[in-house]
Simulated scan of single mutants.
Amino acid sequence: MAKFVLFLGVLFGATAVVAGAMEHAVRGMIVSDVSGADAMVAGDELSDPAPNAEVAKRLSQYETGVKYHMYHGLALIGLGVVMAISARGQVLGFVAALSLVLGVALFSGTLYLISALGMTQLTMIVPVGGSIMILGWILFLITVLLFEPLVDREDLE
């Protein structure tokens, strides 16, 4: 189970980097959706200020989704390490991992859809995803509290 959680963490890290790299394309989608323009003005860069408040808001939502996506990928890696070196808490750690995965899918995934495609009708899903992520962190904490090393210190000497 620990290896699978580590795999999920690395997968989330990689997909968060991909999502961040796609920000330029998403910016174009947002600008064209908000302004009705077919394409971005030549020379627009990611560092350029957003042309209006709606674009800035949607870009901020996208960036928040990417951040939480990455943070939870790193958390899954940490959880996988704890599970790999602990004699206890394997099942609870796995449930924590599933909670984090589901929470990120709902939280970040919904933010991606809202920001890139303007699907504001999905807004109420974001706090549900956040709540499931909080549950995942609580289960992660309990997994850490159950931690018992696989190897005793005396065995290493």
Rank of each mutant, 00 (worst) to 15 (best):
A19S: 14
A39Y: 00
G20S: 12
M29Q: 14
S35L: 07
F107C: 10
E54G: 02
E23A: 09
I77C: 11
I77M: 14
W137G: 05
V82K: 00
A42Q: 08
H72T: 15
L102S: 12
L6H: 09
S60A: 15
D48A: 14
L117N: 13
Y68F: 11
M83F: 03
M83I: 13
Q121M: 15
L8Q: 08
I85W: 12
S115N: 10
G43N: 01
A53K: 11
S108D: 07
A37R: 03
S115T: 11
M119T: 11
V31E: 04
K3Q: 13
P51S: 09
T110K: 07
T64I: 14
V34N: 08
L11N: 04
V66P: 00
G65Y: 03
A42F: 06
A21E: 03
R88C: 10
L74Q: 06
H72W: 05
Q61V: 07
D33G: 12
I132D: 03
L46C: 00
T123G: 14
R153C: 00
L141Q: 01
E148T: 12
G78S: 13
L139N: 01
Y62G: 01
M124Q: 07
G9Y: 03
S108I: 09
E154F: 12
I125T: 11
M40N: 12
G136H: 00
E45K: 15
S60K: 06
G129S: 10
I132L: 08
A56P: 06
E45S: 12
Y62T: 11
D155H: 09
P127W: 08
L111Y: 05
G80I: 05
A116L: 08
S108C: 06
F12H: 07
T15W: 00
G109W: 06
A105S: 13
V95D: 09
M119G: 08
I142F: 09
R58H: 07
I77N: 09
Y71V: 00
V81N: 06
M119Q: 15
V126H: 01
P149L: 12
I132Q: 02
V17H: 02
I77V: 15
Q90A: 13
E45W: 01
